[in-house]
Nucleic acid binder design. Structure first.
Length: 901
RNA sequence: GGGGCCUUAGCUCAGCGGUCAGAGCGGCUGCUUUACACGCAGCGGGUCGGAGGUUCGAGUCCUCCAGGCCCCACCA
């Protein structure tokens, strides 16, 4: 089926050879299909599904590192892990029509395609009719959609492609329409003349969230407004300071602070607006900053948000002097017809002529811009559809407050509350063509607003005056209006489908903290509104991925394509490197070095796997029971039992870390175990040349079991390599579960550990390190055997004599046969080589000093009566044990030193 | 103006009240050991930004200070 034919060639590099993992993915889909999980059905008794919605990427976009981190790093990790835990797992993919962004992208493509098609450069028409343009949009959607979906597959995302959705699919359009109609009937949507952000380039309004601020330096002009009535001599001039003199023609008041002693006596008097000569009142309003300029503010309700609010409070007239193209309207009088920049210059000239421009000075201030095109905001008063947010926000605030929804990291909850508690109404209409239509018609004869019933066809007759001259609202809805419905609209809402019953509410929503307000908060509100329940119980927020200290952006030219990274290093390496060592919510610095570590680690795992497989081939009869059952038998060596115990420790640790959403720690711990303990220590001890006769098979059994565990443990982060190795491993023996694929096999449950063995073996490792250190210090040829004497409490290490000898190239002898009843970390190591006694003494003295320092600390702690009295018993016990060890260590170092003479 | 975060090894970061504070990268030294030179072994490197406080015990909790970053907001 289509899914398979589109499967990407996920590639990882191994010794210059391209390793094709697409076969693995094909395999997964085969299994999923035959398992029937894709088939919708009712909730099964007792099941608790794990449900996640993909944070839908923009359909016209390419994958960036933020996506790779979220989708491939965290979400797929969670999906695979929960699936392995036996939870029916739905991770639902899709893409967003991306309203204005997509429209801009396609307009550019169209302009490239055929310049003859249009003479106009301004959007959105391009010389096409609306229907023609939308047809072009759809044509391009078919071009873009497979692209982003293919990139998701490359990452290894185990998404349920049978449930993929696109926000502009016809059924999704219907759901958005119903949502709008219900909100309208409930009084959550209203239409009003308000001041909005207007983008002169994109020719549309946008919301506060889409507005950014940049610091800019402009001219601040001080302009005198002459008194309109005779004033006593000595009356001060009214001078206002403005950065936008061209809007003076739309002034309808001058405002001062009501408590400002300089001005309060003049409230109610009138001044003349320069150039337009209109009389306006001086009003008192607390929004005025007394410190700024002269303390007098020109009020232009038509072109400034603050002024609009002041105007609302004082019933001021709204004059619109600038039109949607940035040209001055007839209301601008002598400035009419000029664009806003020319009008500014012209206004300054006129003010100078009239002697009303007192002075100008530079001012550095914040200027609002549109986040998509960075055009300076032009606040305009327009009729728009608004969503009343406060009532919707209330239950969504409560849901986080009472723990129904948990946000990770926790501090993001404060940010959420801060925004939600001060939420403002949301302008939802946009003056573009690509997007969800607004299901509202206006009667051209009687101005009636006609909103059809749910699922009713488009109205053709005005219910009030029976006119047939109805026109649909030409605007479309903000993109986020539809994505806010994603968790329930994709499951079939408003129909009570089986999927909706089975998969709502979802489990986790994973996304970047930068869209907490845009998307997460709105999904919470709309989910509660439409479903009566929150859309998810956990919000996991990740941070920004930067390179060289900067956020990646196209304009900075520092965007690195994850696709290229995957082609070069493999998807596994990228996925792993992105999450390794990063705490929840923290921004991260991504570097080539990090990616290389990922690749080396994946390569290490691959090579461990190859080694194990080679051993299995060499000894085909070694496996007695199933691969995934803990090996046992008298032929198991201490080393075998040690790695088996350590494997269980890793299972415990890694399970805990994922359960606690500590994915960065999970990745680090995984590497620590696989590389340091398994590869560097155990694999060496499992090599046939290091095994006593008769214990070779035990090594193979152990290796097979440990690899099986390790592949499962690594699989959520490193799916391709682990899956490939598992398929090969499992061909060598039977398995207790029947899953033919790692993606569907079980996450390991921790088994029995041997704490004492781990402890003793840990000591043996320390001894090995110390012997190696001394050998290298002494510059002994690595091939030469040295004689090593172990004294002190070394008896505990007798079972590991061969191991120590084998790993260090030493002929190990034990000192006088004392049998230490308890394990004490004080072993004397004497490497018998010709050596520099002075250097040895210096080293030993340094060690002794350090050991004494530690000993003193322990003694001090024990001697402190309040410590024993107040610290928990376990801590006191631990400290006592540490004290004993330190005493022995000091003694043993002292002996060694004495022996040097 | 309001809110939030960060400051730990040369760099990037973990560390969520309890042994000597860790990892990766980088640095230095020695090794062509048939899983892996994309490797192995070893070494060096930290007054945990500063000052107080709480506690038997603080990198971890509290307060203040100094730097850096982010978000929200109607200083024209």
């Amino acid at each position: 089926m289509a899914i398979r034919s589109e499967a990407p060639r996920a590639v990882l590099e191994y010794r210059g050879k391209n390793f094709d993992a697409s076969a693995v993915e094909t395999f997964l889909y085969d299994w999923w299909e035959s398992s029937g999980f894709f088939t919708p059905g009712p909730k099964r008794p007792g099941e608790t599904p794990f449900v996640m919605m993909l944070p839908l990427p923009n359909v016209t976009g390419d994958l960036h590192l933020g996506h790779a981190l979220g989708f491939g790093g965290y979400e797929d990790l969670m999906a695979r892990w929960h699936r392995m835990r036996g939870e029916p797992t739905l991770w639902l993919p899709g893409s967003d029509h991306a309203g204005i962004i997509a429209q801009i992208v396609v307009e550019k493509e169209l302009a490239k395609e055929g310049a003859g098609r249009t003479n106009m450069t301004t959007s959105p028409t391009l010389g096409l009719s609306r229907d023609e343009f939308l047809a072009e949009m759809w044509r391009w959607m078919e071009h873009y959609k497979p692209r982003i979906y293919k990139q998701l597959r490359m990452l290894g995302c185990s998404l349920d492609w049978t449930r993929v959705h696109f926000t502009m699919d016809p059924d999704m359009q219907r759901r958005v329409r119903i949502h709008f109609i219900r909100l309208y009937r409930n009084g959550h949507l209203y239409r009003a003349d308000r001041i909005v952000h207007w983008c002169l380039t994109c020719q549309t309004t946008y919301s506060d969230l889409e507005s950014l601020h940049v610091v800019r330096t402009d001219q601040l002009s001080y302009v005198r407004y002459p008194w309109a009535q005779a004033m006593p001599s000595g009356t001060p001039d009214v001078i206002v300071a403005t950065t936008r003199p061209e809007t003076i023609v739309a002034d309808t008041a001058v405002a001062v602070h009501p408590d400002d002693p300089r001005w309060k006596g003049f409230i109610g008097k009138e001044v003349l607006v320069p150039v337009s000569e209109r009389k306006v009142k001086i009003i008192g309003d607390e929004a005025v900053d007394r410190e700024f300029g002269t303390g007098a503010l020109k009020v232009t309700p038509g072109h400034d948000a603050t002024d609009f609010d002041i105007g609302q409070r004082h019933g001021l007239q709204v004059l619109s002097a600038i039109d949607t193209r940035g040209f001055m309207t007839p209301a601008a009088g002598p400035l009419a017809g000029l664009d806003r920049d020319a009008a500014r210059a012209a206004m300054i000239e006129r003010l100078k002529e009239k002697g009303l421009l007192m002075r100008q000075e530079p001012i550095t201030h914040n200027v609002g811009i549109h986040d998509r095109c960075e055009t300076v905001d032009e606040p305009l008063v327009m009729k728009q559809w608004w969503m009343k947010m406060k009532p919707l926000a209330k239950p969504a605030i409560a849901a986080v407050r009472d723990g129904t929804v948990r946000i990770i990291p926790k501090y993001q909850e404060k940010i959420y509350f801060e925004w939600m508690e001060n939420i403002r109404d949301w302008p939802v209409s946009r003056q573009i063509w690509w997007g969800h239509s607004i299901p509202v018609w206006y009667c051209q004869d009687c101005n009636e607003i006609v909103v059809p019933d749910e699922d009713a066809p488009d109205p053709t007759t005005c219910p009030k005056c029976r006119s047939h001259d109805l026109r649909q609202d030409p605007d479309v809805l903000d993109t986020w209006f539809s994505s806010a419905l994603w968790p329930h609209s994709t499951l079939g809402w408003p129909e009570q489908t089986e999927d909706l019953a089975r998969f709502y509410p979802g489990s986790v929503l994973e996304t970047g903290y930068d869209i907490l307000f845009f998307w997460v908060a709105r999904m919470l509100m709309m989910g509660i509104q439409n479903m009566g329940d929150v859309p998810f119980g956990v919000v996991y927020l990740h941070g920004l991925v930067r390179t060289e200290g900067l956020k990646m952006s196209k304009s900075k030219g520092n965007v690195v394509s994850p696709v290229e990274m995957m082609e070069e290093h493999g998807a596994d390496a990228l996925r792993y490197a992105l999450v390794n060592g990063i705490a929840a919510g923290a921004d991260s610095e991504f570097s080539e070095g990090k990616l290389e570590n990922g690749r080396r680690f994946v390569n290490k795992l691959w090579n461990v796997g190859r080694f194990v497989l080679a051993q299995l081939e060499a000894r085909p009869a070694a496996l007695a029971g199933p691969i995934d059952v803990v090996p046992s038998g008298a032929d198991l060596t201490e080393a075998d039992r040690w790695i088996l115990s350590r494997t269980e420790a890793a299972v415990e640790e890694l399970t805990r870390l994922i359960e606690q959403y500590q994915f960065g720690e999970y990745a680090t711990a995984l590497q620590q175990f696989i590389w340091t303990e398994l590869a560097d220590f155990y694999v060496e001890l499992a090599k046939p040349q290091r095994r006593a006769a008769g214990s070779e098979d035990a090594a193979v059994r152990t290796l097979a079991y440990v690899l099986d565990r390790v592949l499962r443990l690594a699989h959520p982060s490193i799916p391709f390599v682990t899956e490939t190795l598992a398929l090969q491993l499992w061909q060598h023996g039977s398995k207790s579960d029947r899953a033919p694929s790692l993606v569907l096999s079980a996450w390991p449950k921790p088994g029995t550990r041997d704490a004492e063995l781990e402890d003793r073996f840990g000591l043996a490792i320390e001894v090995v390190r110390r012997i190696r250190e001394r050998r290298q210090e002494a510059g002994i040829d690595p091939r030469m055997t040295v004689r090593v004497a172990l004294g002190g409490d070394a008896a505990a290490l007798r079972p590991f004599a061969d191991i120590i000898a084998s790993l260090t190239g030493a002929d190990v002898r034990f000192g006088p046969g004392d049998s230490a009843p308890t394990l004490v970390r004080a072993v004397e190591v004497r490497v018998e080589v010709p050596r520099d006694a002075t250097a040895d003494r210096a080293r030993l003295e340094k060690e002794l000093a350090a050991a004494r320092g530690l000993l003193e600390r322990s003694r001090g702690l024990i001697a402190d009566p309040s410590f024993s009295a107040r610290a928990p018993a376990a801590v006191v016990e631990k400290t006592k044990a540490a004290l004993a060890e330190r005493e022995a260590a000091v003694a043993s170092l002292q002996t060694e030193l004495d022996r040097l003479g």
